[in-house]
Computed example of a mutant assay.
Amino acid sequence: MTTRLNERKAAELKPRKQSYEVRDDVVRGLILRVGVKGQKVWEVVTPNGKTASGRPRRTRTRLGLFPDLSVKEARRAAETIKADRLSPGASRGIKTVSELFARYANAVGGRMRSFRDVESVWRIWAEPRIGSVRITDLNIYHGIDLRDHISAASSQTRASSALRVLRPMLSWAASEGYLPVNPWLGLKAGTPALERDRVLTEIEWIKLWEVAQSTHYPFGPWLQALMLSGQRLSNVAQMRWDEIAGDVWIIPALKMKATRPDRARSHEVPLSGALSDLIASQPRLGPYVFTTTGDKPIVPGSKLKVRVSTQAELTDWRWHDVRRTAATLMASSGVQRFVVERVLGHSDSSITAIYDRASYRGEKREALEILAGTVIEPLPRERLTNE
């Protein structure tokens, strides 16, 4: 059936005992396919050479779902795809999703808040799954497959978070003309991320430390450093030797989270005696303190977490809960909340912060010595530096 489609006509199409197609008479090759359950899918048919017998060969490309993709948007997407098919290279030199991500990172990475989270999701989950997919073949089913894979390997919450940070890339690609339309436009992320308040108990904290002590380099020492510093997982995992200046670890501004990257500041972490000794005892295999290859930092993943969970008898926890527990332990030991926030590297949004440029190095060091005392015999007072 062929008709001049509009929003009303498309909405009024009813399912039948068998799926059927309605061809748009405005854009040649544009089809709205109606399934037996009422789902309406936009597709475009384009020529793709000839068969061995000389008959025309055609290719169908899925554009998205109606009404997520309007009639006007579907026509524009169909025209773009047809133009790409007729003029090779219209995709501007990008062939795979990996190449698309590289272009995306170069374009927005420097000005997007927490782009390191996007890079982490891409490297750990998305690149192995869809990195080699041609962008002309990318469709909603790749998104569904990725979501289901992450749900099975980790959790539904992590799968939802992964889709939420990746979909803006495809929207950007569509707006820049790399894709005719966001192929994941109608894809549901699923379970929303919930705010967590999990804090490890004293027994769980000690058991986690014991597991960290018994685990070989680099993951055991990394976990110890995570517990002793209270810093973010990625910052500890990506710790570099050139960031250690005597008894202070300086995390560069580009690694710090900030609403506006241009306002991010480097973060000083005074090393407690225990953390200083731990770092000094690690082998120097390359620029990173914790590494398996020498030239790249470690990536603590779900397999390590499962092993640690089993050995420490921990349930319903995440790596970030270690940071929350560290903050709680310092606060419950009498450390002022303001100092705890400085240890964590949280920004101070008060007016006073504009004028107060003190590093609070001495206060932070004492707080971190107190944190170390939760797993190690408290150090004598003479080890504390008066700064």
Rank of each mutant, 00 (worst) to 15 (best):
E7A: 15
E7V: 03
R8C: 07
E12D: 14
K14H: 00
Y20W: 01
D25A: 10
D25G: 05
L30Q: 03
I31E: 01
Q39G: 12
Q39W: 07
V45M: 15
P47D: 04
N48K: 07
R58W: 10
R60L: 11
G64W: 11
F66K: 06
E73Y: 08
A74S: 02
R75W: 05
R76Y: 08
T80E: 14
A83C: 03
D84F: 11
S87H: 12
P88R: 11
A90V: 06
T96I: 08
T96V: 07
A102W: 03
R111D: 04
R116H: 13
S120D: 14
R123N: 14
R123Y: 04
W125K: 05
W125C: 04
P128V: 04
G131N: 01
L138S: 00
R147M: 08
S151N: 12
A153F: 09
T157I: 15
R158D: 07
V165W: 09
V165I: 10
M169L: 01
W172N: 01
A174F: 05
S175W: 04
E176T: 13
L179D: 03
P180L: 00
W184A: 02
T191D: 13
P192F: 11
D197M: 07
D197W: 05
I203K: 14
I206L: 12
K207I: 00
V211K: 00
H216A: 15
F219R: 01
P221Y: 01
R232I: 05
R232F: 11
V236A: 08
M239H: 07
I251R: 08
M256L: 09
H267K: 15
H267Q: 13
H267W: 15
S272L: 04
A280G: 03
P283G: 02
P283T: 02
P287N: 03
Y288V: 03
G294P: 02
V299C: 11
G301D: 10
V306H: 03
R307H: 04
Q311G: 00
E313Q: 11
W317E: 11
M330V: 06
F338D: 11
T352D: 09
A353V: 02
D356K: 04
R357N: 08
L368Y: 06
E369Q: 10
I370T: 14
L371P: 01
A372I: 04
T374I: 00
L384A: 08
